[in-house]
Amino acid sequence: MLKISTAPHIHSPQTVSGIMKDVVIALIPAGLVAVLFFGLPALIIIATSVAGCVLLEYLAGRFWLKTENTTRDYSAVITGLLLAYNLPSSLPLPMVLAGCFMSIVVAKLCYGGLGKNIFNPALVGRVFLFISFPVEMTRWPVPQFMNFLNIDAQTGATPLGILKHLDAAETTLIQSNSLLPEYWKMFVGYTGGCIGEVSSLALLLGFGYLLWKKIISWHIPFYYIGTVFIISGITWLFTHDIRFEPLTHILSGGLMLGAIFMATDYTTSPMSLNGKIFFAICCGILTVVIRFFSGYPEGVSFAILIMNAFVPLIDRYFTPRRFGVKK
């Protein structure tokens, strides 16, 4: 019995779940570093968040939306990982689950599920928690290498938090430098911060993997991080104010995590190359503005969420160059 179907009759081996699995693999190094520095509590948060997201998607699909099981595409795993990576390791577990609910049920399934959501689900969850539980969300355990139990960890500040609360008088002093961790510590992740954001090294490893597997292009992370580096760098050159020191700005906070894994989210980023570059530069500008002028030390999540809202508009104005048409 012959089958008939329309052309093309062959298909590339890439599938949605394959892409999602690759993103999960790319996120593993950052998780390992987190466990190394923040111990078991970080692992528990990651596990809770992933389990919470997958379970909520399964339950919502089964009992509420009556759709078939959509958890097999691994996208809920990514949301769970990214949400966990955006939380401090001391956050109480019920709050983690509340974040999962916001991410999966409100930000993703209410919009129609994978591919239909306007805002990055993990960031919606994080911002919801950040605004609802400001105290718990800004209590940063001090990293301790290989101290896995880490139950009564002391809390400290993140590099960006230190910068935010410097006195005006201190800002131009060279000694203020000593308040910040050394660059190598920020690079490997030996500083305070959210679980998955501290280690630029681990995140860049994941970035390399995504590039190698051709899951994402380099444009959004490059232009996003580049914009933050250039604006803070120029400000720093003119003011010599430690608060604008560009290397600290790109190595600390959620910039690497946001630029590599969340601004590049397929569904919530523009389709055309020029649109992606425009989106990334705007994210960079917003991040710097929020970091410099707002009451919050960090602005990556807000910047990406704000730009998510502009994606349909960007898609309308930035279209690919058509063959045989002069601009």
Binding site: S5, H11, I19, G113, L114, G115, Y266, S269, M271, S272
Partner: peptide, 11 residues
């Protein structure tokens, strides 16, 4: 031919 899924806007 595999079953059609949601567009994930991968471009």
């Amino acid at each position: 031919k595999k079953e059609e899924q949601n567009c994930i806007r991968c471009s």
